[in-house]
Amino acid sequence: MPANPFNGYTDYGIGIGLRIPHYDHILERKPTVDWFEIISENFMVDGGRPLEVLDRILAQYRVVQHGVALYFGSADGPNKAHLKKLKALTKRTKTPWLSDHLCWGSADGTYSHDLLPMPYTKAAAKKTAANIRMVRDYLELPIAVENVSSYTEFHVSEMTEWEFLSEVVERADCGVLLDVNNIYVSSKNHGFNPYDYLDNVPHHRVAQMHIAGHTKFEKYILDTHDHPVLDPVWQLYAHAIRQCGVTATLLEWDDKIPSFDEVHNEALKANAFIAQARAAKIPAPKGRATAKR
């Protein structure tokens, strides 16, 4: 949905990730961009160039925070020092919502710096939802959780990935950052129908969408974020916005990053699908939308 409790009732358009190779272009030329997504952890520092650049960006643009290390699914639970730094950053950016991944990545205080997949069980969903609620209550912000791309499945899983995502977000009463590329990547790696996934997530909770490029190998697909968006992902995106409504959309391009204009133009291709969805005049999805701040 364009504006809902899970994205702070905002109606953001098409954004791109703020990346170092584009800093000079953005600061000097001030291109028109709906919004930038920042990786929270890159700016959870006490000073220096990262914060100087961020402050200059904040003076000109809308910024949304996206994290890679909250690890909502970690059995250890959220790290308090991390949360304290994160909250200080949210005060600076005034992000209307905050997203991170439905994954784990640390064990007993050591960090993998990866987005590791969850076992899809009721107990894991319950613990993950409790972690999300704790983070939301501490940060006092709407939270959206992003589905990750994955390369393995666990014997212990009791449900599909979309059932697990739904179980978590319903229990946590939070939003979804629907990563369409990740759905595609995982569908190929695990052999499910990506449209089944899209049709069965709680559409009214979708706060934002991600699109990105990926790389095909002989036996699996890797979520590399180093290419333009491929056609099957655009088709999934078109289906997603028909189901969920036109939602804040962000292109991720994190490796082999081309010029700012090339990245931005790739993101703006989403406009064609948005126009089709608007023309179809599909009613907004209904649901129990009661997100807490």
């Binding site: 059995a75 007993d108 590791l116 076992p119 009721k122 107990a123 613990k127």
Partner: peptide, 21 residues
Amino acid sequence: AKVASTAELADLQRAMWRVVS
């Protein structure tokens, strides 16, 4: 063999982390 509690979730994550690292 199952993850029906937070303790079992921790065990599974610890096991996978040992393999990954």
